[in-house]
Structure formats: C-alpha cells, structure tokens
C-alpha cells in the first residue's frame, strides 16, 4: 500500500516534470490556454457566484444568531463575514466545488483521449503530450481560479448583506462599518496563496488520474471520481498546512 502511494507520487512528479518543458509551438499552447481559461473561468462563474452568495448569507445569519443576547457589537457580523470568507470559505469551498466540476472534467477529457489512442497518436506525431495536454490546463487554472476565489469572497460579503440587512438584523450602516473594520491585507495574501495552491492541486491531480487511465469506461468513471476525491483530500490537507505555516 505504502509502495503504491510512492509509485504514484514518483510517476506524478515525472509527469509534471515533462509537462513543464518547452512548448513545441507557443501559439498552439497559447490558444489551448485561452480555451481552458474560458472553460474553467467563464464556465464556472455562475456556480461560484451562486455558492458565494449562500456562503455569505449563511455565515451572516448564523453569526447573528450566535451574537444574540451577547455584548459583542452587532456590526461585528460584517467583519466576521468578510474575514471568514476571505481566509477560509471562499478559497476552500470554491476550490472543493471546482475540484468536482473542473477536476472531473479534466480527468474524463484526458482519460478519454488516452483510451481512444489519441494520446498515442499525438506521441507518434512527436508531440510532448504531457506538456500539451496538461500545462495549458494548469496555467489557465493558476490564473483564473484565484480570480474566481476573489470574486467569490466579494460576492459573499454581498450575500451576507442581503441576508441580514433587509431582514432587519442590523442596519446598512452597521454592516458597512463591520466590513470596514479591522482590515488586514495579509488575509488577502493568504486567500491568494490558498487559491493558487488549490488550483495547482486540483488540476494536476485530475490530469494525472486521466493521463494514466487504463481499461474502459468503468475505469474512466473511477478515474474521474478519484480525481475529485484525491483533489478534495489534498486541498483540505493543504488548507491545514497553510493555516499552520502562514498564520
């Protein structure tokens, strides 16, 4: 069992080493990267936005419930919604969801190409398939996912507002005051570190699952599931490590 993990890890490292070598043709890689940015970024905007609204709303309502009858000033709700989404909820939940959406997609796409001998066909042409099929996806994710996370954080704060202000928990001024209090830009840095690390993990792990798939449609389904499961586990593990190391 332990050996198996080591074998996978070694093969993963070799694959990623090959993936980041010099492109045969920059314009082809550029085009592919743009396509991926569109798929991952624009394609995920709705779901990310939707989730962010609810994260913010739930955080706000629940914190309001916890504060009820305490001496903590009510405007703290805005502050808590802002910081908890920036530091934790926006990067982690967004990336867990993207692991499900983007990760399974990457594994299925690359795995299908492996099974249908498309990868062999490209290899015979002289294409570095690890590079052409993986690098654009990882690069696109590294650019686009942090942006999505930033949008998610912003939308969450807005979601919190909708949940508590119109409902009468607190006034417009109080919420805004909360959102403006105790701001520490280090938290933004933390958010981007997390988003970048998670983006790398979910794309490369999913690509690995697809690239080495064998067998038929059952194995392809398993690869797609594994991509999501392993990405999720690694994201949570990395989340913990970053929390320990950087805060």
């Amino acid at each position: 069992m332990n050996f198996k993990i080591l074998t996978h890890f070694g093969r993963y490292l070799i694959m990623m080493g090959t993936a980041f070598s010099r492109p045969e043709k920059t314009s082809m890689y550029y085009k592919e990267t743009m396509r991926q940015m569109n798929d991952i970024g624009v394609g995920s905007l709705t779901i990310v936005g939707l989730i962010a609204v609810f994260i913010g709303a739930v955080t706000a309502v629940q914190f309001a419930y916890q504060l009820d009858g305490t001496l903590v000033p009510i405007y703290y709700i805005g502050y808590i919604v802002r910081d908890s989404t920036i530091i934790e909820l926006a990067p982690t939940i967004t990336c867990l969801v993207l692991a499900g959406k983007v990760g399974s997609n990457i594994a299925a796409e690359i795995g299908g190409m492996r099974q249908k001998e498309h990868i062999d066909a490209m290899e015979i042409m002289g294409v570095n398939t690890a590079a052409y099929l993986i690098m654009p996806k990882v690069v696109a994710a590294l650019v686009v996912i942090p942006l999505l996370v930033a949008i998610a954080a912003f939308v969450s704060v807005f979601g919190g507002y909708i949940a508590v202000v119109p409902a009468g928990y607190m006034s417009h001024e109080e919420y805004i005051q909360g959102v403006r209090s105790f701001f520490d830009s280090y938290n933004i840095f933390l958010m981007f570190v997390k988003a970048t690390v998670f983006a790398y993990l979910l794309t490369s792990v999913s690509a690995y699952q697809g690239y080495y798939v064998k067998g038929g449609s059952i194995e392809l389904g398993q690869a797609s599931t594994n991509a999501v499961v392993f990405s999720d586990i690694l994201i949570l593990l990395a989340d913990y490590l970053i929390a320990v190391l950087l805060t």
Binding site: K116, E117, A121, M125, N128
Partner: peptide, 19 residues
C-alpha cells in the same frame, strides 16, 4: 525520439482521429 517521430506517420487500427 520526438524529433525522429516528426518523420513518422501512423495509421491506427481504430483510426484514432481526434473526435
């Protein structure tokens, strides 16, 4: 190997066209 392969063409049993 990759350089040599630019001189290689292959037709696969199942064609392997990019679908």
């Amino acid at each position: 190997t990759r350089t040599l392969r630019m001189d290689v063409g292959m037709l696969f049993q199942a064609s392997a066209l990019f679908d």
